[in-house]
Amino acid sequence: MHLAISVEEAVDLIPDGATVMLSGFMGVGVPDGIVHALAGAGKRELTLISNDTARDATGPGPLFAAHCVKKLICSHMGLNTIVQAQFASGELEVELVPQGTLVERIRAAGVGLGGILTPTGVGTKVAEGKEIVTLDGKDFLLEKPLKADFALIAARSCDYVGNLAYMLTATNFNPIMALAAETVICEPEEIVPVGMIPPDLVKTPGVLVDHVIRASA
């Protein structure tokens, strides 16, 4: 399949039951077009890995309103009342992960590490059921890598070979998630000729990007 695909083609690639990473922080740096299309297509039983769920209608919000998500792995459920209701009713399974641990678990999967040792969570509920590794007298939690079938990411700019640049705090989880999924789909705000993004500003090399949502004609 071509690098540039339509949002409908992107949605067709993602089957029910898939594990999907969705970048963003409180709705900033989220590929909103793909989110709305996935929700509109009525996907079911997704496992969603996302830092938070923002609000009812922002960020990942539409996926919950359309009952697409079976399991959520996040650091914070945000201010999303639909998520709150689905969690309370048991419709939604939630795994809460400290934010720094969440991003490092994703990074571990993306860079070929077998896991990470973090002091975060030692002596708290987060440590329940996890292995403690003591090194030089200090306790760490062994946290396992987190990978996905799809990473849905948002970029400021994308060139014809898929090189990506991000903007300000919309960067957040994007470059990390772009390493950690079988298929990486990017929704850029603009598409530019090769060379327009200076090499030093490319934060995700195009070789990592499988598909780019095509510009609307």
């Binding site: 938070d52 914070h76 459920m77 201010l79 709150q84 400290p98 934010q99 641990t101 975060t120």
Partner: peptide
């Protein structure tokens, strides 16, 4: 409980 976010880190 919405989550710990970055507080534990």
């Amino acid at each position: 409980t919405p989550g710990m976010g970055g507080a534990m880190d």
